[in-house]
Design a protein around this nucleic acid. Structure first.
Length: 889
RNA sequence: GGGCGAUUAGCUCAGUUGGUUAGAGCACCUGAUUUACAUUCAGGGGGUCGAAGGUUCGAGUCCUUCAUUGCCCACCA
């Protein structure tokens, strides 16, 4: 008999097992043809990341499925790693530099990158330690980084491959430019927010007739300095006479034409639009259609440049004020109206993004999107919940080219070289040299004076390769045959992965692009299921964020409630978005403690020698058969809930079974029968198998208990998932037990109503019209006595006449309890009448339904049958109740 | 402007193809306890399932409209 501490001491236990699992290498997976593979790749957290609630939720979900599949006999691989997170990481080190009063340019690219790598070495592993505290069962020795050597090979390989296929191109277009980070951004990286702005109506004088104006409306007057036309709709009769005429651009006095373009909406503003091809994507399009000059009026940091005349060197917003003021003085400002519109912001630093003309690298997306659309439409890839399918398809079907070059230093430098050349240079030397390794000389002129493209690639251009680049793709030719074939086998075995768990925010950034990359480079979908979980919010529904100061730190929760509590509570709340406050974690803490104390009770009362498989359950008593049956039914339901990605449902099933049924009923029922070996056997078996079933959800407490019970055996995380034994599930047993439990509840109820203290002794006489019930009551009278706190139970086909008795009616069973002086006949009448009332309501609605010819005709036969049975039960119960009432009268 | 959700007990939410008298946890109230666990146990009150129509033998569940609310996408200057 073992004695455990009184409470589950998670502080010591959690740390012990994370270390143990890691040291014993419990989570390592290797290609094993004997077993099916089950792979999940972690959504790589940023290398700057520290664990937040979103991570905790995301990784708990993955850990549950991975531990479950591992126990089910799969070779389960959970691939860990981090993302270099270009701009985010660079920002961290730039801030450090700023404290020293330096900019990155001051120390140069090489020194700057060294600092970044140093930083990464020192802090980049933080999140892994935190994930281990959470219990994440990743295959840690496989940990990858999106900028490690092999991974960089993959990125270069992909760039070159796509370039050769014509899917990567370089061009000068309007892109989203962050003036603070001084880099291009993709469309997805520009976050649109509604802002209160103004619509400025400006008079543009005609050249031929300076007293007359055309009024244009704009939200950004500072860009007018770069105007190269004014556009109107060709069908707009107000303006058609002026098409082709010249306008003099105020402040700059440049002559610009009035052009006609369908893009212009005559309803909006004045119906006349200033055209600034270098500072607006729409205007850029018009500029190309009409072959307009493009005049860039800003420096990369959004100060006005030399094209801006008097406004040179002003910041863009300063210039907006100044220009408005000048126009007002010249009486060229018609009016200014308030105007709300969406303005793009940098997703990293929230600076207002400038549409900016610049030369960048792009990926042509349409050909890549095709198979990715197909895969989802045909169900090869499924989203959970399903509604995200539409979101994905909508984006894919309207896909635009992807700007992949960034003007920062931290990242994969673009594998492109330019011939800087000399006199011997030919025209072809202007062509970029695209290669996986640095070329020695220019293929055209032979010059060795080459310069690599200074830009780096978008972080997501490496993340989209994550599901296969982490598995060693592309296999290097240079390696020896043996190593190569091992790597090939590994890749083939673990790819494609099974399911992906992530947040809906990155469907476009990451999920969609991974699907495209999977098809393009591996010829296969990277995963078959995508589970998108909710956002973790605070109690008021606001997103948890550091800047709002409303974030709960998962590490603090682990410290205070334990990792199991954190995991269990998060999943319990994880239907849609999660609204979390600290007290939400009590449920998990309490449950872990309940498991602990149930174990404590069992170990105090049993001999572990009794722990063995149960083959024949038919000889067991009713409650034992009931709990065994309940366990296997629950196990079956839990397994299918996990398979269907219904995690909170799986947890409720476990919670209800273990706490309400096993602890509150079964362990109470057998309280006086610990001495019987069969009791010990059943109890130990249920505990043992429940530990396995609960382990994926609460790995620490279950592992600790397991090792206490089985000091000689393997860790719980390596045990097989319990086999579902259908023959141990028995609905008849469950229903019979249900009746018994109802009788007990009814008597407890009666006690409460009559205010009878538990110590007060009462006796009950039972009868039933069904002989089976009598047998049942007879056989279980000790249980009845103990749980309903009865002095005596008499089974009596003929009930005696007892004055001052209260009645208990459950189905066919009737019990009477002599209450002597306590009873107030009128009260008892009321009580019975109330019960009759309730029953009558149900009876009426049901009998009405059964009298309806349409119902009998149209409803399915089994439904009708069931309803008839129900009606019969109601009828009997009603009769009994009425009989009791009559006797009282 | 387009798309996707949400609305069920005081609070947070389950409720899987329509079919028992709509459930759980928390909170609240009553009671228990020489206790495996006060991180416990037994019991109780509390809901015309956002509103109005419709389909159906039958609607929390399906359809339409509306209201409130959240999120995503979007180049009307």
């Amino acid at each position: 008999m073992t004695e455990l501490p009184k409470c589950f001491n998670f502080k010591e236990v959690d740390a012990k097992w994370s270390t143990y699992w890691e040291e014993k290498n419990c989570f390592h997976a290797e290609a094993n043809p004997e077993k099916p593979a089950y792979t999940v790749v972690i959504p790589p957290p940023n290398v700057t990341g520290i664990l937040h609630m979103g991570h905790a939720l995301n990784n708990t979900l993955q850990d549950i499925i991975i531990r479950y599949k591992r126990m089910q006999g799969c070779e389960a691989l959970w691939m860990p790693g981090t993302d270099h997170a270009g701009i985010a990481t660079q920002n961290v080190v730039e801030k450090q530099l700023a404290k020293e009063g330096k900019k990155r340019q001051d120390i140069g690219r090489e020194a700057f990158l060294k600092r970044l790598w140093d930083w990464k070495k020192k802090y980049g592993g933080t999140i892994f330690h935190q994930l281990k505290k959470l219990g994440a069962s990743c295959d840690w020795p496989r940990t990858r980084f999106t900028m490690d050597d092999g991974y960089s090979e993959a990125v270069k390989h992909v760039f070159v491959k796509l370039y050769k296929k014509g899917l990567v191109y370089r061009g000068e277009y309007i892109i989203n430019w962050c003036p603070r980070c001084q880099t291009a951004l993709s469309d997805e990286e520009a976050e649109h927010q509604d802002m209160q702005g103004h619509l400025y109506h400006i008079r543009y004088p005609f050249k031929e007739n300076p007293g007359q104006y055309l009024i244009v409306a704009t939200t950004r007057p500072e860009t007018m300095l770069g105007d190269t036309a004014v556009a109107v709709n060709p069908k707009d009769e107000r303006y058609s006479p002026f098409i082709g005429q010249k306008i003099v651009l105020p402040l700059i006095n440049r002559e610009i034409p009035i052009i006609a373009d369908d893009f212009v909406d005559p309803e909006f503003g004045t119906g006349a639009v200033k055209v600034t091809p270098a500072h607006d994507p729409n205007d850029f399009g018009m500029g190309q259609r009409h072959k307009l000059p493009m005049i860039n009026v800003m420096h990369p940091d959004a100060r006005m440049n030399e094209e801006a005349g008097d406004f040179q060197d002003m910041d863009r917003f300063e210039a907006r004020e100044a220009i408005t003021e000048s126009l007002r003085e010249l009486k060229l400002l018609e009016k200014v109206e308030p105007h709300n519109h969406a303005v793009g912001h940098c997703y990293r630093c929230h600076t207002v993004v400038e549409p900016y003309l610049s030369k960048q690298w792009f990926v042509k997306m349409e050909p890549l999107a095709k198979p990715a659309v197909e895969a989802v439409k045909t169900g090869k890839i499924k989203f959970h919940p399903e509604r995200w399918t539409k979101v994905y398809l909508n984006w894919m079907e309207n896909i635009r080219d992807w700007c992949i070059s960034r003007q920062i230093w931290w990242g994969h430098q673009i594998p492109v070289w330019y011939c800087v050349g000399d006199d011997k240079c030919k025209l072809e030397c202007r062509e970029p040299i695209v290669a996986e390794t640095a070329p020695e000389k220019c293929p055209h002129c032979g010059s060795t004076n080459l310069r690599q493209d200074e830009d780096v690639l978008d972080t997501w251009f490496s993340s989209w390769l994550w599901p296969f680049a982490t598995l060693g793709w592309p296999i290097k030719r240079s390696k020896n045959q043996e190593a190569r074939s091992k790597e090939e086998a590994d890749l083939k075995y673990f790819y494609p992965t099974a399911s992906l768990f992530t947040a809906p925010e990155i469907i476009f950034f990451w999920v969609a692009r991974m699907v495209m990359a999977g098809y393009e480079f591996m010829g296969e979908a990277p995963f078959s299921d995508v589970y998108l979980h909710g956002t973790v919010r605070d109690a008021q529904g606001r997103k948890m964020s550091k800047s709002l100061g409303n974030a709960l730190d998962p590490l603090e929760i682990i410290e205070e409630y334990g990792a199991d509590a954190l995991r269990f509570s998060l999943i319990m709340n994880s239907g849609q978005d999660l609204f979390i406050s600290k007290d939400k974690f009590e449920i998990g803490r309490n449950f872990a403690n309940k498991i602990w104390n149930a174990t404590r009770l069992i170990l105090m009362n049993t001999d572990l020698a009794n722990l063995k498989e149960l083959d024949d359950v038919s000889q067991l008593d009713l409650p034992s058969r009931w709990i065994v049956s309940r366990f296997y039914t629950t196990l079956d339901n839990v397994s299918s809930a996990i398979e269907k990605y219904r995690y909170s449902e799986a947890e409720s099933l476990i919670y209800d079974f273990f706490w309400k049924q096993f602890c509150d009923w079964y362990l109470e029922i057998i309280k006086d029968r610990w001495a019987e070996p069969s009791t010990q056997q059943v109890t130990l078996m249920i505990l043992n198998e429940s530990l396995k079933m609960m382990h994926p959800f609460m790995p620490f407490v279950t592992e600790e208990i397991w090792q206490n019970i089985h000091p000689e055996s393997d860790a719980l995380c390596q045990q097989p998932w319990p086999t579902i034994k259908k023959d141990h599930s028995d609905t008849t047993v469950e229903n019979t037990m249900q009746t018994l439990l109802e009788v007990i509840s009814a008597i407890r109820n009666l006690r409460a109503q009559w205010n009878i203290a538990p110590k007060e002794t009462i006796s009950c006489h039972f009868t039933s019209t069904n002989p089976e019930d009598l047998k049942l009551l007879e056989a279980n009278s000790p249980i009845l006595k103990s749980l309903a706190k009865l002095e005596e139970v008499v089974i009596d086909p003929q009930l005696p006449t007892i004055p001052n008795a209260a009645s208990v009616i459950v189905g066919n069973i009737k019990g009477i309890i002599a209450l002597g002086d306590i009873i107030d006949i009128d009260e008892e009448k009321k009580r019975i009448a109330q019960q009759i009332n309730e029953q009558q309501k149900a009876f009426n609605s049901l009998s009405k339904r059964l009298q309806n010819a349409n119902f009998l005709q149209k409803a399915p036969a089994d439904v009708v049958e069931k309803e008839k049975e129900r009606l019969a039960t109601f009828e009997i119960k009603l009769q009994k109740l009425e009989q009791v009432l009559a006797e009282l009268n």
